[in-house]
C-alpha cells in the first residue's frame, strides 16, 4: 500500500520539477528569441520558436498529467486547488512568451537602433521575472522560507521592466521621422513584452498567499 503511494508521490514530484524547469527554459528561450530578432538572425529565431512551442506543449501536457494524478490519487486534498491554480497561471506565462515571440516573427516590427539596447533589457527583465517566479514556485513546494526572497526579486524585475517600458515608449513617440502606425505597432510589442513581467508578479502574489496557507 505504502510502496505504491511513495512511488506515485515520487513520480508527481519529478513531474512538478519538470514543469518548473520548463518554465525556466521558456524564459531563457524567450530572451534569446528577442535577441535573435533584434540582431536579425532569422534562422536562429525559427529555432527558438520551435523550442518555445515544444516547451509550451510539453508544459501543458505535464500540467494536465499532474492535475489528473492529484485528483485520481486524492493527493494534497487541502492544497490541491492552490497547486492547480498555481500551475495553471505559471503555464500561462509560457503561453504568453510563445505568443509574443510568434507575434514578433509574424508582424516583424521595426526595432529602431535607438531602442535596441533598451528593448533587449526589457526582454531580459521579463525573462528574469519568469525565472524567479519559477524559483518561487519551487520554493513553495520545497522550502517555504525562501519564497519571499524570490517574490522580492520578481517585484524588482517588474518595476525595472515598467521603467524601461516607459522610456522606450517615450523614445518611440519622440521620434520625428517615423510613421504613427509604426510607432503604435512597436508600442504594442513593447507592451506585450513588459506584460510578461506583470503576469509573473501576479503569479507571485498567488504564491505569497498560498505560502501563508501552507504554514502549519
Amino acid at each position: 500500500m505504502f510502496d505504491g503511494l511513495i512511488k506515485k508521490t515520487k513520480i508527481i514530484e519529478s513531474e512538478i520539477d519538470l514543469f518548473l524547469d520548463n518554465i525556466t527554459k521558456s524564459a531563457l528561450v524567450f530572451k534569446e528569441a528577442i535577441r535573435d530578432y533584434s540582431k536579425g538572425e532569422k534562422k536562429d529565431l525559427k529555432k527558438r520558436i520551435e523550442q518555445i512551442s515544444d516547451l509550451e506543449r510539453q508544459t501543458d501536457e505535464v500540467r494536465r498529467e499532474i492535475k489528473f494524478k492529484l485528483y485520481r490519487e486524492m493527493l494534497i486534498p487541502d492544497a490541491r486547488g492552490d497547486v492547480l491554480g498555481l500551475l495553471e497561471t505559471m503555464d500561462d506565462l509560457v503561453d504568453i512568451a510563445k505568443e509574443v515571440v510568434v507575434q514578433i516573427d509574424i508582424e516583424k516590427p521595426e526595432i529602431f537602433p535607438e531602442i535596441e539596447d533598451k528593448f533587449l533589457k526589457l526582454a531580459d527583465y521579463s525573462s528574469k521575472a519568469i525565472e524567479s517566479t519559477s524559483k518561487a514556485g519551487n520554493a513553495y513546494f520545497r522550502n517555504i522560507t525562501e519564497v519571499n526572497n524570490y517574490i522580492n526579486k520578481v517585484k524588482f524585475y517588474e518595476t525595472e521592466a515598467d521603467d524601461v517600458e516607459t522610456e522606450i515608449k517615450k523614445i518611440i513617440f519622440d521620434k520625428k521621422d517615423c510613421e504613427l502606425s509604426k510607432k503604435i505597432h512597436l508600442r504594442d510589442i513593447i507592451v506585450r513584452v513588459a506584460f510578461l513581467s506583470d503576469e509573473a508578479e501576479e503569479v507571485c502574489e498567488r504564491i505569497a498567499v498560498y505560502s501563508i496557507k501552507r504554514n502549519i
Binding site: L5, I16, I76, F141, N143, I144, N215
Partner: peptide, 17 residues
C-alpha cells in the same frame, strides 16, 4: 513539527504522504 518541517525542506507532495 513546524521547526522540523521548516528545516527539512520536504516537498509538498512528500509531506502529504
Amino acid at each position: 513539527i513546524r521547526k522540523l518541517l521548516h528545516n527539512s525542506n520536504i516537498h509538498l507532495i512528500r509531506k502529504d504522504f
